[in-house]
Simulated scan of single mutants.
Amino acid sequence: MKVEDFDFHLPEQLIAQTPLKDRSSSKLMVLNRSEETIEHRHFFDITQYLQEGDCLVLNNTKVLPARLFGTKEETGAKVEVLLLHQMEQDNWEVLVKPAKKVKKGTTLQFGEGLLKATCIDEKEHGGRVLQFKYEGIFLELLEKLGEMPLPPYIKEQLDDRDRYQTVYAKEEGSAAAPTAGLHFTDELLAEIEKLGVHIAYITLHVGLGTFRPVSVDTIENHEMHAEFYHMDKETADLLTNVREHGGRIISVGTTSTRTLETIMRDHGKFVEARGWTDIFIYPPYECKAIDGLITNFHLPKSTLIMLVSAFANRHFILKAYEEAVEKKYRFFSFGDAMLIL
C-alpha cells in the first residue's frame, strides 16, 4: 500500500494548540463500523455508548518532563535534548538538536551543571546515547530542569504541565502522552464504573515512533521504533473474563491497541507480558484483541491513521476525517476524539 493513500487536507487552524478548560467537553465523533454511520456528540456522552460488562483499557504511562535545554561544556553552544527511554543505569537514548553539534565524547550540562551528560554513542535521525552524571535523584532533577515534550505542531506554551498527563498517569517513562486518554476526568471514570463497565490498565511508554514521520513511499517498507510495554496478570485475567462473558474490549488510544494486539499476536490470548513491541498495524490487518477504539484525530500519512484505518476501513475513516474538517473538529494531541464501535 502507498503512504499517499492515507493523506487528507488539513487546514492548519484546526490543529489544537491548547487543551480545553474541561477535559470531557471536547467533541466526540461516533463511528459505527458495520453500518458506516457517523454521529456528532460530546466526549461526556460516551457513557451512552458503553454497556455493562464492557471493559475500557487505559494506558497508565506517565510523561516525563523529558525536554532539556543545555549547553556544550566545551563551547557553551546551546543544545536541546529529548529523553526517549532509559537503557541501563544512567544511559538514555535521546534526540538531540542540533545533532551535528553533539558527537561521541561531547559533554553537555544542564541547570548550570546540576546535571551533566556525555555522548557515548551516535544513532540515526539525530539519535544519541547519553550517560548522565548528577548528585541526588534523577527524576527529581528532571522535574526541576525539564519541560514537557510537547509535539512540534504545538506552538503555544503549556501553562499547566498536568494537562499533558492523563488523570490516571502512574508509570513514569513516556516521551509523549497517550492523548486519547486526556479526555477523561476522575468524575467521568467514576460514572463509567457505575454503569458496570470494567476499567483496566496497561502500560506502554511512548517513544521515538511518535516523533518519526513515515519517510517511505510504500507502507510495508516503514520500520516502527520499539516501545516498552507491560500488562499484569490481574488485567489479563479481567480481559479474558470480559471476553468469555460477551463483553466488549474498548481500547483507549493507539498505544493501548498496539499493546493488546502485540500480546494477542504473540500468545493467542491475554496473558501477563512485558517486553518491547514494534508492531505496525495497517490495512488489511484484522484486530484480534479489541472490539472498540477511542482515539484522537491524527496526522495525514501517519502510522496512527493507518492503525485506525485497519480497524475501521480506510475509505470510511477518510470520509469521517473529511467530515471532521468540514465541521471544524480540533486535531491532534489537544484535539477532539473519535469512538469507533
Rank of each mutant, 00 (worst) to 15 (best):
K2V: 00
F8M: 01
Q17I: 10
T18A: 10
K21V: 05
R23E: 03
R23Y: 05
R23M: 02
S25Q: 05
S25C: 01
M29A: 13
R33P: 04
S34R: 15
E35L: 08
T37G: 00
T37L: 02
I38T: 10
R41W: 05
T47A: 04
E52W: 07
D54Y: 07
D54Q: 09
L58S: 12
P65A: 14
P65M: 10
L68R: 11
L68H: 13
G70S: 05
G70Q: 06
E73D: 07
E74G: 02
T75C: 09
M87I: 15
L95N: 08
K103P: 02
K103N: 11
T107M: 09
G113H: 09
V129T: 15
E140Y: 05
L141A: 12
I154E: 12
K155D: 12
E156W: 04
L158M: 14
D159T: 14
Y168A: 07
A177S: 11
L189E: 05
E193Y: 04
L195G: 08
L195S: 07
H198G: 05
I202C: 08
T203P: 10
V206A: 09
G207S: 08
G209F: 06
R212C: 01
R212D: 01
V216H: 02
N221G: 00
H222T: 06
E227Q: 08
F228N: 04
D232P: 03
D232H: 06
T235R: 04
A236M: 04
L239N: 07
V242K: 08
R248F: 03
T257H: 10
D266F: 03
G268Q: 11
K269L: 13
D278M: 02
D278S: 14
Y282T: 00
C287Q: 09
P300I: 01
L304E: 15
I305W: 15
A310Q: 12
F311Y: 14
H315N: 15
I317L: 13
I317P: 14
E322D: 14
K327E: 13
K327W: 01
K328A: 05
G335E: 10
D336A: 05
M338Q: 11
M338H: 07
L339C: 03
L339I: 02
L341G: 00
